Simulated scan of single mutants.
Amino acid sequence: MSKIEQTVEIPHLGGSTVGYTFAKSYDPALPTLVLINSYTTSAELYRPQFADPELVSAANLLALEPYGHGRTRASYQDFTYWDSAVANLQALEALGIREALVLGTSQGGWVAVRMALLAPDTVKGLITLGTSMDFESPRSRDLGCWDGIGFNTPLIDALAEPVGEDWVVPDEVVDDVFDTAMGGVSAGEREFWLATYRANYAGDAGRRRLRLSTVNLRDRDGLHGRLDEVRCPVLWLHGTADQVYSVANAQEEIRMFTRSPGARLETIEGGQHFLSASNPAEVDSAAIDFVQRWV
């Protein structure tokens, strides 16, 4: 099977192009599982899922890239996670998909929840991986989560000034992301992501997208006051080796989905922050079970 990588035009933010990837040709007889990637990655984060024949047979796998990531571009110059949620919903509409389950890794998790809040008739279930529903708060740090302000502020400051068109993202930025999110990667995987980041974040436009993506990560709004409005089932998967958000935080926040017909946390031993990449077998199996239970 071969992936189908395309873009779709939507009206949000003055007109936008959303990058999307299907694992194979769309089958209207199957449910759709939307995949939303983590900070500064792209649809390529989900290569293990696209390569899993059992998962591909259970659902249409559709990766949608948020603003600031991959091939997604907007006419307007600024964006938030709420904008990415709206864009994803408009992309589904443009693709003729009326209902979907949504899986998101880290920032993809809070985009997924925003989609469910905005369009409960469209989003029929949520799978969140290694995420947090809070802003980068003192509360989350007290529960063992990272210092997102300390991690992101130096990069935001370093990217403040315009650059030439020959600029590409520094290697150390990519290394910092994958050291934190994966505990490091193999030499081959590192070269793959270095090439991917250099293509996605090049020139002054790339610098600006990278900076805004980092600002959004640091300065986002929390969702605690809204989680009781989520009415679909929620499966939260969290790795015990996650260096960014803690299991203790996930244990508190899963209980905030008080109106979900089924909100459940599962921990994965040794799982990293980018859980779909570090533990694809466990994530894929849980996703298949979730799809079969709730569709």
Rank of each mutant, 00 (worst) to 15 (best):
S2N: 15
I4V: 14
Y20C: 08
Y20A: 08
T21F: 03
F22V: 01
F22T: 00
A23N: 05
Y26H: 08
D27T: 12
P28Y: 10
V34G: 11
N37V: 02
R47L: 06
N60R: 07
L62M: 05
H69M: 15
H69Y: 14
A74I: 03
S75H: 04
D78M: 09
D78N: 10
S84P: 09
S84Y: 02
N88L: 03
A91C: 10
A94W: 10
G96L: 12
A100H: 10
L103D: 04
L103Y: 08
T105F: 06
T105N: 15
T105A: 09
Q107Y: 11
L118A: 11
V123W: 02
L126F: 00
I127G: 04
T128Y: 05
S137F: 08
L155I: 06
I156H: 02
P170F: 08
D171N: 13
E172A: 14
E172R: 13
D176P: 06
D176H: 15
A181F: 13
G183E: 08
G183W: 02
E191D: 13
E191F: 04
W193I: 04
R208S: 08
D219A: 03
G222R: 00
L227W: 00
R231D: 14
L237G: 09
N249C: 01
E252R: 03
M256E: 05
S260L: 03
G262M: 09
G262F: 10
G271D: 02
G271F: 03
F274P: 08
S285P: 03
